[in-house]
């Protein structure tokens, strides 16, 4: 969803400038869980196979 020059992150719901490719809130949250996920990579958000 776009709101003016921002769009909503579909993972965390944060409104982010369209100039940003990466959601900063998701990036920080991923870094918080990084150590916990080191031994279990499955805890990282899985990438769904996209077929186009």
């Amino acid at each position: 969803m776009k709101v003016g020059d921002r769009r909503t992150c579909k993972v965390c719901g944060t409104l982010v400038s369209v100039s940003r490719e990466v959601c900063p809130v998701c990036a920080l949250r991923a870094a918080i869980t990084e150590e916990a996920s080191t031994e279990n990579s499955a805890s990282e958000a899985p990438l769904e196979l996209r077929t186009g």
């Binding site: 579909k10 982010v16 196979l49 996209r50 077929t51």
Partner: peptide
């Protein structure tokens, strides 16, 4: 690959197949 880091809208991303073709590697 950068758009896949922590995408704001995963539906706007290219497909893996497209990236694979672009980079000349497998999915």
């Amino acid at each position: 690959l950068k758009p896949f880091l922590r995408p704001i809208d995963s539906e706007a991303l290219p497909s893996y197949e497209q990236v694979a073709g672009q980079l000349g590697i497998g999915v």
